[in-house]
Design a protein around this nucleic acid. Structure first.
Lengths: 228, 228
DNA sequence: CGGTTGTTTGAGGACGTTCAAGTACTGTGG
DNA sequence: CCACAGTACTTGAACGTCCTCAAACAACCG
């Protein structure tokens, strides 16, 4: 039962739900609950069977690859509106990644069985889910391109350009350096050096604030392509 | 118009089509054509708008990331039954990758407009497509984990274990060393050294044939996890 | 104020690339 | 049948990138 009015509003603006007819949204929410979870919470671990589809209403959550004895890496951050690892829920297969709450978040939890049944029954829902997966698929491709073709410095440059929308000006990093390093597949030390290196290419830093002074220089430095 | 009997059989065993009612398959094939394309054919380049959904009926095709001045990398190989870059077709957005035919293939080409219309109209189709995307999503995740957490040698070991189904015995590489190196994000030289290194962990090679003698040794070496 | 945590800097080393040479296999034409 | 060229793969040496380890520094908080 969803009680808070603010949650109701947030839920109806989630991409996979936004365009659904109201009665279908209500159906999805029958057994749904919303939880406030503090930073550090581990929602699930690799190998767990998904019991719920988690949807981030607010806050921030990291998908973490755990390599026994090989450290951890962040595959992606999820924020408001993202459905977390729908593929595991859809296919009813164990998670490949861990879900860690990075800053306090409100999470909508939809029972996995309900989701699967509704996906089979309702055209509008499976179509919305398909499009959400397609969009996310492209994010992963962009990341694989980065990992295979770019150096550590270039990966940081590319990440900053995407964050900034390729516009000159200040932007605010949402993660601390350690997490950002794990997302960019490098150590915190290398990240620090990468920021230092980018000073020569139009990037100034001040704590978690970053100023991009020369977008074009930075774009050329990392071979940024405009493919959306 | 699809004339060959053998194509008809292949088409009906493609995952996204297999479970559809016959009349829906017929609808999808109204404007479809099947082409035989030789190795080396470039089906599309990054930035191209998708005109067709390509489905591989036989042969082999590589999805290639092109980094201006940074070389090329293979993101994934596609073989019989795979629908090639459905996300670009679904969203009607430019390709992020190039499609290159690696060995002579027969390709089913479905007009993109038709595919999008049918995806909107038919529950069975969007559901099948959603599941196909979810499965492929997990492949990409596994690759990102490899790239972020494993060394070059370990990536090769992991690739061989997946190819072999984790069974002892001979297996046949389908790609030449250069392409395999591009798939594993290393140079052909490093790949050669990686094969040499794996000799100490239960792997023997003879041209494109590879013998895994000690599955367990190899699993431990690369920290292989069983998550399906 | 000391302790904790997050970031930077430096030195040394491991992993992987680059460049260069060498070997093996293939098909071609004499 | 052999000489030759072309391709695929391997091996070696030097170099560069990034990691590891260690220390220094800053900010924050009890």
């Amino acid at each position: 039962m969803i009680t808070r009015q603010s949650d109701q509003a947030l839920i109806r603006s989630v991409p996979i739900l936004a365009e659904l007819p109201a009665h279908l949204i209500d159906l999805m929410l029958v057994h749904a609950v919303v939880q406030t979870v503090p930073a550090g919470t581990r929602l699930f671990e690799p190998g767990d069977r998904p019991t719920h589809l988690h949807v981030v209403l607010s806050g921030r959550l990291g998908l973490v690859a755990v390599g026994e004895g090989r450290g951890e890496a962040v595959v992606e951050f999820f924020t408001a509106g993202d459905a977390v690892i729908a593929p595991a829920v859809i296919l009813d297969l164990p998670y490949l990644l861990a879900g860690r709450v990075v800053e306090e978040s409100r999470i909508l939890m939809l029972p996995a069985d309900d989701v699967r049944h509704l996906l089979e029954a309702y055209q509008a829902l499976s179509h919305a889910m398909m499009r959400a997966l397609a969009r996310h698929w492209r994010l992963l491709i962009r990341q694989i391109k980065d990992l295979k073709l770019r150096s550590a410095n270039e990966r940081l440059a590319s990440y900053l350009l995407i964050l900034s929308g390729q516009r000159q000006g200040w932007l605010q990093l949402q993660e601390d350096r350690r997490l950002l390093a794990q997302r960019l597949a490098m150590t915190p030390e290398s990240l620090s050096r990468a920021f230092a290196a980018l000073r020569a290419h139009g990037v100034v830093t001040d704590g978690r604030k970053v100023l991009i002074t020369e977008v074009e220089t930075l774009r050329r430095y990392c071979g940024f392509d405009d493919l959306v």
